[in-house]
Amino acid sequence: MAIPLPWWLTVAAALFAIGLYGVLSRRNAIGVLLGIELMLNAANINLVAFWRYITPQALTGQVFAIFVIGIAAAEAAAGLAIIISAYRRRRTVVVDELDTMRW
């Protein structure tokens, strides 16, 4: 392996940070969801890199990553359904404009 493990982890950390920034700075709920997908991918890169370098003989990391992708699909389906349903009601999916309730 030409690339040392910390390189992969650094890339994953960067992707995680970028995703987190997206989550914290976006106003649009779908934009937030995009950031969340980036974070999940960062975790997946971590998992696969750890699998490759630390437990290459077991399947653990790869299987976990496959499950994460499946869960992400379920989460995206549920989340987008909720967002679309909110959009139908309010004609907005900007999180800070959803303010019927305060405190």
């Binding site: 779908i30 997908e37 987008l80 999916v93």
Partner: peptide, 11 residues
Amino acid sequence: ILFSIMLTRGL
């Protein structure tokens, strides 16, 4: 996601 963006494109 692309589909949802198109459905809520008014934003």
